[in-house]
């Protein structure tokens, strides 16, 4: 499993995403990866894998749609249990090479 170093990612995720140097195809692919059927996106954070996304759902998550996604490094499901029986927190880690600069090194000046 590939992991990225956190420092370049944590510099400023919003700026990396906003910058048109990150091409439309990359953005579309990233957007496609983070949208998972039946799960509401709660948070998006840089992490050692690239991007970690926290989702919330009041239904048991369908793991088949989760595992079918490209670039998923790791996923975890946290039932809220006694706090809230019908709520699930799913954290999915995606490899996002482009955000780290792999293949785009010249554009980002790394």
């Amino acid at each position: 499993m590939h992991t990225t170093t956190a420092s370049p990612v944590t510099t400023r995720l919003s700026q990396r995403l906003a910058n048109f140097k990150l091409g439309d195809a990359v953005i579309a692919s990233l957007a496609e990866r983070v949208a998972i059927d039946g799960l509401a996106i709660g948070r998006i954070n840089p992490c050692i894998y690239g991007i970690c996304v926290d989702y919330f759902s009041d239904r048991l998550p369908r793991l088949d749609t989760l595992t079918a996604k490209r670039g998923v490094s790791k996923w975890e499901v946290f039932p809220y249990g006694i706090i809230d029986w019908d709520r699930f927190h799913v954290r999915v880690a995606f490899n996002v090479d482009e955000l780290e600069g792999r293949g785009l090194a010249r554009e980002f000046g790394h």
Binding site: L17, A18, L22, R43, I44
Partner: peptide, 19 residues
């Protein structure tokens, strides 16, 4: 906006929410 621009704005906003 083209479709990818809408996705870009959405992702940037999500990131800002964290920052």
């Amino acid at each position: 906006y083209r479709p990818a621009d809408l996705a870009r704005l959405y992702l940037v906003s999500l990131a800002l929410e964290q920052e």
